[in-house]
């Protein structure tokens, strides 16, 4: 049996006295699309950020293709922070898309995509620009290559951000509420890009409030509440047959809010 792409085992994390994650287990297999849903403050973004170690975790293990991220184990079974260079090398293989896009405002769309290729992958500027232009074409923004982020709509910015992550040819993509900061009419274009990515077989872990998208694209849905995964299964099961009262209640408020 091949190792899962992402393997989360008994992960715990506290901010001061507040315990955000309590013994979370989650696997994402190669080419699988998993959506994390749950009420705000449930710990889903924190969990996602533990996967590329933007957030450190206190207990448990997160492994990417079998390799522990963030820590290395010593002979006595204790652990210490992993060398920074090794962590960077692992992060290269994990693409991340943020809620607020986080495009660098002083660079054009093209430069935003090309910059990591130059600094991290060691491409020449010409090679990087070629590749970046390709990637922008893939997200439908070939004509915006020389626009600065402030000249782009939120949806366009997010597509550039996806292109930036994809250009690194990651083995996994993490999405942290990629459409939450967007005006409703701009959500579709971003989801469309993500749908295409899923169809190509990209392994994706997505924190989202877009239940329709989750239902149609995800292979599995994991529901988090108060730092625990309380339901994990195929969309049909979670959305329609869950016996977990918290899941039903969450989906009920969700339906109520969207009923008009």
């Amino acid at each position: 049996m091949t190792k899962p792409m992402i393997e989360v085992r008994a992960v715990g994390k506290s901010f001061g006295a507040h315990q955000v994650l309590r013994g979370v287990d989650l696997d994402v297999a190669k080419s699988e699309v998993v959506c994390l849903i749950g009420p705000s403050g449930s710990g889903k973004s924190t969990l996602l950020r533990c996967v590329n170690f933007l957030e450190s975790y206190d207990e448990g293990e997160v492994r990417i293709e079998g390799e522990l991220i963030g820590y290395e184990l010593d002979k006595e079974g204790g652990r210490r922070p992993m060398p920074a260079a090794r962590l960077r090398a692992m992060r290269r293989e994990i693409g991340m898309v943020f809620q607020h896009f986080n495009l660098w405002p002083h660079m054009t769309a093209l430069a935003n995509v090309a910059e990591p290729l130059i600094r991290v992958r060691g491409l020449t500027r010409a090679e990087a620009n070629d590749k970046a232009a390709d990637m922008l074409g893939r997200v439908g923004l070939a004509d915006k290559a020389f626009a600065h982020p402030q000249r782009l709509s939120g949806g366009q910015q997010q597509r550039v951000a996806i292109a930036r992550a994809l250009a690194m040819q990651p083995r996994v993509m993490l999405f942290d509420e990629p459409t939450s900061a967007l005006d409703p009419e701009l959500v579709g274009e971003v989801l469309e890009v993500m749908r295409a990515l899923a169809a190509e077989g990209m392994t994706m872990l997505i924190v989202t409030h877009e239940m329709g998208f989750a239902a149609h694209v995800a292979n599995r849905i994991a529901f988090i509440d108060q730092g625990r995964i309380v339901e994990d299964g195929p969309p049909k099961h979670v959305f329609h047959h869950s016996r977990e009262p918290r899941v039903r209640q969450f989906l009920q408020t969700y339906h109520d809010r969207n009923a008009f």
């Binding site: 920074a84 607020h100 405002p105 991290v120 992550a165």
Partner: peptide, 29 residues
């Protein structure tokens, strides 16, 4: 903004590159 630095970290940029290419130019403005 912290997110701009996190974006650089998430693609594996080294601290010096993050300073030279992201933090310093934005701070200068």
């Amino acid at each position: 903004p912290r997110g701009l630095i996190e974006a650089a970290m998430s693609v594996g940029m080294a601290p010096f590159d993050i300073l030279a290419r992201v933090r310093a130019p934005i701070a200068f403005v």
